[in-house]
Design a protein around this nucleic acid. Sequence first.
DNA 1: GACGTCATTGCATACGGATGCAAGACAGGG
DNA 2: CCCTGTCTTGCATCCGTATGCAATGACGTC
Lengths: 349, 349
Amino acid sequence: MDKPEIPDDKAKRRPITARQLARMLGVSQSAVSRAFTPGASIAPDLRDRIKQFAEEVDYHPNAIASMLSKSRTNIVGIVVSDMQNPFYPALIEKLSRSLQRIGLQSLLFNITKGSNLEEQLSALRRYNVDAVIIISATILSGQTLRWATEGRAALLINRVVEDADLSCVICDNVAGSRAIADHFYEIGRRRVAYVSGLSHTTTNRERQNAFVTRVAELGMVLCARVDAGEYSYEAGRRAALEIVDRGGADAIFFANDILAAGGLDALREEAGLQVPEDIAVAGFDDIALASWPHYALTTFRQPVDEIIAVAVGMIEDGSCYPGRPITIKRLPGELIVRSSSYRMSDSSK
Amino acid sequence: MDKPEIPDDKAKRRPITARQLARMLGVSQSAVSRAFTPGASIAPDLRDRIKQFAEEVDYHPNAIASMLSKSRTNIVGIVVSDMQNPFYPALIEKLSRSLQRIGLQSLLFNITKGSNLEEQLSALRRYNVDAVIIISATILSGQTLRWATEGRAALLINRVVEDADLSCVICDNVAGSRAIADHFYEIGRRRVAYVSGLSHTTTNRERQNAFVTRVAELGMVLCARVDAGEYSYEAGRRAALEIVDRGGADAIFFANDILAAGGLDALREEAGLQVPEDIAVAGFDDIALASWPHYALTTFRQPVDEIIAVAVGMIEDGSCYPGRPITIKRLPGELIVRSSSYRMSDSSK
DNA sequence: GACGTCATTGCATACGGATGCAAGACAGGG
DNA sequence: CCCTGTCTTGCATCCGTATGCAATGACGTC
């Protein structure tokens, strides 16, 4: 553990410090600090002189030292666990970009089911991140979450954890699932099925309950409800085949797009069914793949940009800092009808 | 910019420090520091006593302060730009996991084509990351790279930049592309086409040159070479249709799997061709989608785990620190034959 | 019993920048 | 010309941990 990982060759010269810069310029270190602090009390021409000279000698303020004295890191910890579903990488990418835009860096915490969470999350505390954004609450208990985020801004995206007193930003799963049910009804389907991913996640529970309820309200028959066990293509495939085996369904709502993709392929290529003629398929999320012509997946689009905007906004304005009342933002999504459920009767070109 | 982002409510009590802990325990702050430093000179029972008490009062060493005094952050900057291709999120996830396993955190730098790179990358220097792993060299010049990584360990994954004096770990694109060419030859194809993503990237150049060269060696005809302009499904789709328009090809090698997926769907569903009977398709990477039954994509599998292992190893043993001779590791991949190019003549079940 | 060795421990200071406070500079008003 | 208020600037200290060095004590040896 104590290898000479950093070779102390001649090449190991430290970067220039504010003090050195100050001495060279005949000013105080405070002046240098102020030159790089927006809004600090310093004469404009002095600031310019310092900044210009800094450029010449390639001085960059040391962020670590700044963190220490300001007790502010400008780092947001992003806790993720399930990167199989393309929805999350896409979300994370946009999120980190938005954070960067307001001067925040993203420190990735990739938690694994197997290993000990405490140890992984203790880094969250030691690194003194300003805020924590949890994108995967799948395997985190409210207690763990409370501990990990204690004393700092925290915020869940796309998950709700009841006993954790955390604010969250989430797509309106209920409206989405009801919209799918309504859509199935409108296109004449009456015998529907639901495929869940991980049945205990809040997203799944919300989607499932809302869908099942609406299906009943509309007088449709729920002829199958399959728990795929995970959010993957393969799981969707198996679930679809199981539903076909049981027979009778004329529409399937998959808890997310990646499941739906697997299901769709299985229905067409393994079960030999026509989609949407024999059976309609819908997913949730509207990931990139959903718009590919091959899938043309009817789905409920999560308002990713809005989710991110709201989340970043909450971090920026401090409304998710401890002590503030927690808020749960449910953002509306949009039903996207494609030919996996309903083929427009237009020219087939 | 100076909003009271961190509310200084009563809730804002600072966490306990090593000094406080020390005072409570009647020992010196050094002792506390040593208790948490593996290999430090301290009596085992004192260490235990301190650690136990620390647990009781919920003391966690402040990593920021530690970074400052050790000039070591245990943070690796990961520079990425193109997250459209699922290959990269998958890579990043595994990479960050591996880094975490040896106590390194991943700070994400998501660079965007449009905005000014200098500003984005200056964070790399200010944050004093111990090492930089660049997964996207697409839009970075050697000069920029040299500047951004100056004085710290740096390493390119899946890219080579000639004028940057950086070590890199990369899949053997040449062997891979030759293997694809050989495979096309073996299955009887003689009129092949190549589809590039971004033509100026080194991966593309390597793959293209190797493929074209091998095609010539084998006496096959290269009847089309299309630059798709980006690595996307849609680009692959367009490229495939263009090749069909020109006519004559009986096999297409796409520079990566996501292009191939788009191409494959277009060939089957828009051009009405049989794959692989009329035209064989191959990609590169072996992303998850390639193994989906619908695509069953013949591809050259990048040895992702090995790439990561080697990269992490180089960071761990310091062999990519400045001053060390740069090394270029080319790791062998594996040709994966699936039915997009060659259908096993087995029972169709 | 004296001395060398080694393991522990504390002291003091370094790491690089931020900031409260006071001093100096300067302008305007009386 | 003095007084007061505003703007700049430097000084000193702080942020929390790491670590070289010296001091202390324990132990073994001859």
